[in-house]
């Protein structure tokens, strides 16, 4: 029976190895903040973190998750303790319908975290101040989620501002 670590808690689930992580999260664990959008990894509404990296959970078989740490929107932050990305999402009033926003924020958070650690390795801590703020082009290249309401202008501003905090 596959074991699963989600937001710091361990679960055992009795499902087929091929079942995508998305449906395990939503229906076996009741974590419905992660959304279904396309089922083909095209839109990113289902984005979660696996060991801190952004992954599209609608095409990730549960068998391949193994013992990795899964983080969902429920584990990213709360109203009392928001993630820097969520603080900026609120400050810039990003969401309209809001459906893509859990996945969008998970992508943004992983992008910013990954970028910081890469810079750390490549250039050493001294270079961080110079490169603290991401550029629009970096954001556009890194985040490929779809927002049908078209909140991209605010998403871009929110990610750039969050990058100042995350780094």
């Amino acid at each position: 029976m596959p074991k699963l670590t989600v937001n710091g808690s361990e679960y055992e689930v009795d499902v087929e190895p091929a079942m995508p992580l998305l449906w395990v999260l939503r229906e076996e664990l009741g974590l419905r903040g992660t959304k279904f959008g396309c089922g083909k990894g095209l839109c990113g509404a289902c984005t979660v973190h696996i060991n801190g990296r952004a992954v599209r959970s609608c095409i990730l078989p549960i068998a391949s998750v193994g013992e990795a740490e899964v983080t969902t929107i429920e584990g990213l932050g709360t109203a009392e303790a928001p993630h820097p990305v969520q603080e900026q999402w609120i400050r810039h009033r990003v969401p309209q319908c809001g459906y893509c926003q859990p996945g969008m924020q998970m992508s943004a958070a992983a992008f910013l975290a990954g970028r910081t650690s890469q810079d750390d390795m490549a250039e050493g801590p001294d270079s961080l101040n110079n490169r603290a703020t991401v550029t629009d082009a970096e954001v556009a290249a890194a985040i490929t989620n779809i927002c049908r309401c078209g909140c991209y202008e605010r998403i871009r501003r929110a990610v750039v501002d969050a990058s100042k905090e995350v780094s």
Partner: peptide, 21 residues
């Protein structure tokens, strides 16, 4: 003024039809 559903949508707690349990 700030829309009343902003925080729920940011923290992923809005219940859409697809989330009905």
């Amino acid at each position: 003024h700030v829309r009343p559903d902003l925080a729920d949508k940011v923290f992923g707690t809005t219940e859409y039809g697809i989330d009905r349990d």
